[in-house]
């Protein structure tokens, strides 16, 4: 399934670059870095986070979340990282392979490699917190899937080169709802080393982390135990 998704995304951009060499400053090389980062983060999510994320609404609605609260580990980490999906691990390997191919084919420089190693954990964290934020309404509503569906749609913004959007939309998607921080802006920073982009990545990921943790605490306080 994921392989089909990755292939179709690659095919869309391959088709786009048949018509142009440059998408508002983004060449095919930069877009391939974007896709490589996106695939890597998405496969990480599918392997480590997906099962916990998808099952959380039913866990909360059925009152099973009580047992999560009683575990002697951090509740946040246990809620989302409680199941590893071995079948998705192959996707992770494939994504790493794609990144390596892109890096070799387009001759990644040492600075770009170092930048990637530094910025990737930040992008990964922003991605985790964004996904968690869209699942948190399950603590307040009966049908949280509407937000998850919205997240699935907004994911398309994360896979797009940031400069196709207007400055206002870029600001919203970079700082307030930082979908561009997942892959688009990190790819731009790796290629251009533009400090303004790094600032937006740092600000966007910090804000989403703080807000999601604040929302998580609110959600836990709002949760009414099954036995209460």
């Amino acid at each position: 399934m994921d392989l089909v998704y990755y292939s179709s995304l690659f095919a869309v951009y391959y088709s786009v670059y048949l018509f142009t060499d440059n998408l508002n400053g983004w060449d095919f090389r930069a877009t391939l870095f974007l896709l490589a980062i996106w695939f890597l983060i998405d496969s990480f999510h599918m392997a480590f986070l997906a099962t916990g994320t998808w099952s959380l609404p039913s866990v909360v609605n059925q009152g099973l979340f009580d047992s999560y609260l009683l575990k002697p580990v951090n509740c946040f980490i246990f809620s989302f990282f409680n199941k590893f999906e071995p079948s998705s691990f192959y996707n992770l390997l494939l994504s790493v392979g794609f990144l390596v191919i892109v890096a070799f084919k387009f001759e990644i420089t040492a600075i770009e490699l170092i930048t990637f190693i530094c910025i990737f954990p930040v992008a990964l964290l922003a991605s985790i917190f964004l996904r968690v934020l869209f699942i948190l309404p399950c603590f307040f509503l009966e049908t949280p899937y509407a937000f998850m569906r919205l997240f699935m749609t907004l994911k398309d913004y994360g896979t797009s080169p940031s400069d196709i959007f207007t400055p206002l939309v870029r600001y919203i998607l970079g700082i307030l709802l930082p979908f561009l921080v997942i892959a688009s802006l990190p790819a731009k920073f790796i290629v251009t080393q533009n400090m303004e982009t790094l600032f937006v990545v740092a600000l966007g990921s910090s804000l989403i982390s703080i807000f999601t943790i604040w929302m998580w605490n609110k959600a836990i306080n709002h949760y009414q135990s099954a036995s209460s």
Partner: peptide
């Protein structure tokens, strides 16, 4: 979902 393909292809 609408703006992404529109902007992508309007630029291309």
């Amino acid at each position: 979902a609408l703006p992404v393909p529109v902007l992508l292809w309007q630029n291309a």
